[in-house]
């Protein structure tokens, strides 16, 4: 559906997007993930034709971004970050204007606007000026704007930023609903959001793609390293280090007395393909330490993300 090859964008000397190659299939919900300033928005802006690439190529279906920009724009619905809509216009007037620009005929226009009012929940605000709407409502109007021509590709830049938790859930519902039939690309720096809505996640940092795959794939690929946390009573740290360090697969044993000095907190870093919990349990059972807490940190997207985007 969308084919991006060696895409690069320079702002003067600053390289915002560095040699990105990406294929997006029809019907995918793709999450573009990255810290602030990673190049997410710039990438989306190039996909939508707002910026032209410094070098590289974008093909949407068979259209090239250099030659058939207008055709590409017809296929794409785009909601920029924080929905910068015309403040002074009424919601209905705005949607009507967009419908005109999208070249819907008079009858199709009304049908479409009615349908969007239902999908995006715009009942009751059609005659308010956009500038007076709350952020969540504005975002919904923006979503209606982006879906006006029932686009094959929907591109959303941080669709849930600045919304309250209820609104976030609502917007996610809408996105998942649309994503059943359409290709959706959204950018976010909220990981749980990408995890909740996207089929596929692309992590970019400093303009480069550093990970690409489904949530499961990403978790597995960096899943070899596990961290196990223990709290022990009646144990002293040298003995703990000695004993637990001998369990095969445990690479680092970290111990820390808690404030009262009674409970010993232990952090085990393991590198193994198998689950070590059983053997660690048996090791502890042989001693007379009292086990208060015992859990394995699950590898969250959060951790993967931090690991991948850490400096150096």
């Amino acid at each position: 559906m969308i084919h991006v090859e060696n895409l690069t964008k320079y702002y003067d000397d600053f390289c915002a997007v560095d040699n990105i190659t990406l294929d997006i299939e029809k019907g995918e919900i793709l999450g573009l993930l990255g810290p602030n300033g990673a190049g997410k928005t710039t990438t989306l802006r190039m996909l939508t034709g707002y910026f032209l690439p410094s070098s590289g190529d974008i093909r949407v279906k068979d259209y090239s971004v250099y030659d058939d920009l207008l055709d590409i724009k017809k296929l794409i619905g785009y909601l920029p970050e924080s929905a910068p809509l015309y403040q002074g216009m009424l919601v209905y007037d705005y949607l009507d204007y967009i419908a005109n620009i999208r070249q819907l005929d008079t009858e199709g226009k009304l049908d479409r606007i009615r349908k969007l009012v239902d999908i995006c929940g715009l009942q009751g605000i059609m005659h308010s000026p956009i500038g007076e709407l709350s952020k969540g409502l504005k975002q919904r109007v923006g979503l209606a704007h982006a879906m006006m021509n029932d686009p094959e590709i929907l591109i959303l830049d941080e669709p849930t930023s600045g919304l309250d938790p209820n609104q976030i859930v609502e917007i996610r519902e809408i996105i998942r609903h649309i994503g059943k039939e359409k290709t959706v690309i959204l950018s976010t720096h909220i990981l749980s959001e990408a995890e909740a809505t996207c089929d596929r996640i692309v992590i970019i940092n400093k303009g480069k793609i550093i990970a690409d795959g489904s949530t499961e794939m990403l978790k597995q690929s960096s899943g070899k390293q596990r961290t196990i946390h223990l709290s022990l009573l009646k144990a002293d740290s040298p003995a703990v280090r000695d004993r637990l360090g001998q369990v095969g697969g445990v690479s680092v044993v970290d111990t820390q007395d808690d404030e009262a000095g009674k409970v010993l907190r232990v952090k085990l870093t393991c590198i193994a393909d198998t689950d070590l919990r059983e053997s660690i349990y048996h090791t502890i059972k042989e001693t007379d330490w009292v086990l208060l807490e015992y859990y394995q940190e699950t590898q969250t997207l959060e951790n993967i993300f931090r690991e991948l985007t850490r400096e150096n």
């Binding site: 802006r45 939508t48 707002y50 207008l70 785009y78 920029p80 910068p84 809509l85 015309y86 403040q87």
Partner: peptide, 14 residues
């Protein structure tokens, strides 16, 4: 200033 320029440019207009 408002940023609607971005919307305008991503609509199918030249």
């Amino acid at each position: 200033n408002v940023g609607s320029y971005e919307i305008l440019l991503t609509l199918p207009v030249t």
